[in-house]
Amino acid sequence: MFKRLQADTRKPVGIFVDGTAVTAREGDTVSAALLASGLDVRRTTAVSGAPRLPYCMMGVCFDCLVTVDGTGNRQGCLITVREGMRIEIQKGKREIGR
């Protein structure tokens, strides 16, 4: 959906998206890394199961909700990637406690 600038010289950061290795860049938010990954990173809503992707990227819409290192319902657009971070795309109602 989104492509990276050629001149981006930031350090690569390795993360996992549903187990798949993805190379993000230092300073990327989780949502930016997902949108640049080329993977299908659509979550589905807890209400109707409708597919969604990040909408506002500034912490207000909550359409970027993801599970980060086991904690669910995190706003991916506000969290910066870290080496080895495990991201899970949420499908429907997230399991509580994970």
């Binding site: 930016a32 597919p51 992707l53 909408y55 506002c56 990227m57």
Partner: peptide, 22 residues
Amino acid sequence: TLPGVLTAGAAQTLLKSSGLVP
């Protein structure tokens, strides 16, 4: 609400913070 519809501000955030363009 369809995936692929974003705000312009969202695109600008992606552009500024990660150098991403659509």
